[in-house]
Nucleic acid binder design. Structure first.
Lengths: 231, 231
DNA sequence: CCCTGTGAAATCCTTCACAGCC
DNA sequence: GGCTGTGAAGGATTTCACAGGG
């Protein structure tokens, strides 16, 4: 969903900048989560086959993916869970907490702010913004909801933060514009509209109705198939 | 994210079963939404260029995608908004409402149940289930929360329904197993774990931490690039 | 043996560019 | 002239299969 599909290197890095494919980057978080779970259970070494199973990918794909990061496994043995974890965290820039600003504190914004999976996975909610005066001042998971007008201040106070757009479709573009103008260059949006942003801004979009519609297609294809067989 | 990548034809359909690529199917909902918006504004005809802009894809991609459904455009003119809409709705099986069962009525389940984008886009929430006795009986958006034990009954009462897994990671596999055993063959999960399901079950996974981590990678790549330039 | 790392093949997806129709 | 529909080219991603180290 995020804009492009080009290989993403580190521009300006001299010499052999291994270019990690976008498809690989999208899977590294899956491996990371599986590794954390394994570490929690005390597992020290894991084979590509096992880790792939935990991550719901094929082992060949996993090995290819990891090969883009370098050779961190041992033949005949597998990968060190802690080593591999820290290599992936380094590669993805999860070594320190990233600030997250959530705009829109409706049901979804609440759910996000309260989602325990953020803190402890490299993220910290530093701002909750809403336009509704009735919600301002309300504490949600240790953070107090502030008025939308504070948007620029909050973003300025947290360089390199990620903006989350959890407002209705009608105001999503407007909010996106303000975030970008304030300096945000990574957006996660839940609004069911295409956001127009400058090229250098990364957007990822999560659309629940889209996910359900894709599932609907398969339900329907099954039905049509069954009818054809019966007919 | 959903299992495979194979072309999805209608098995058992005689003769030339056009196989629509998975990537195309994932984009049809975007076009559909744009078409609905255009229709609401009273637009009757749209070119691939315009519709592509509204959907944030390229016009060539859009035309290719639509060509898999057949030739519903007119050269020199464009596409009829209403015609194209109904063709896509047919193709995706959105001609009648699909029942949706949501398991887990925490913050996220609430957000989903209350999400206006479902009813009116081909879906109807027919069941809300939770294990917490304090939540049972509570009405959420016209549907009353029922105990988890009712799962099999609810699924049986709504053939071909989609199951939504909005429970904590620890119980996700268990819930998924029950849904599948009860007959559900399409799952949307928000739990940050890989669900093991039989081949014939379609799973789509939405993982907020994963989305943020992908954005984090880009933030970090930007930083590294800036440093390299500065150094 | 077991298991990783990786070229090479195969597949899938996107983009190009233009023939053909309005 | 404008615009769709589509082969063909070009990329990207996945899979294969095996060389090579432990």
């Amino acid at each position: 969903m995020a804009s492009s599909r080009r290989r993403i290197g580190v521009p300006g890095l001299r010499g052999s900048s291994r270019a990690v494919p976008a498809a690989t980057i999208a899977r590294l978080p899956l491996y990371l989560r599986a590794l954390v779970a394994l570490q929690d259970v005390g597992v020290q070494t894991v084979s590509s086959e096992q880790l792939a199973a935990e991550s719901a990918v094929t082992s060949a794909k996993l090995r290819k993916d990891l090969s883009y990061l370098g050779s961190y496994g041992r033949r005949g043995v597998g990968y060190s869970v802690v080593e591999l974890r820290s290599h992936i965290e380094d590669e993805m820039g999860l070594t320190r907490d990233l600030p997250v600003v959530i705009v829109g504190v409706g049901n979804l914004g609440h759910a996000l702010a309260g989602y325990g999976g953020l803190s402890g996975r490299g993220f910290r909610v530093v701002g909750l913004l809403d336009i509704d005066p009735r919600r301002i001042g309300e504490p949600v998971a240790d953070v107090v909801v502030r008025p939308l007008d504070d948007l620029e201040d909050v973003v300025a106070a947290h360089a390199g933060c990620i903006g989350v757009v959890a407002v209705p479709a009608a105001s999503a573009q407007q909010v996106s514009d303000r975030l970008v103008r304030a300096g945000v260059r990574s957006l996660l949006t839940f609004a069911p509209v295409a956001l127009a942003v400058p090229d250098e801004v990364q957007v990822r979009k999560v659309d629940l109705a889209v996910e359900l519609q894709i599932l609907a297609y398969h339900e329907q294809a099954r039905l049509a198939g069954a009818e054809a067989v019966a007919g």
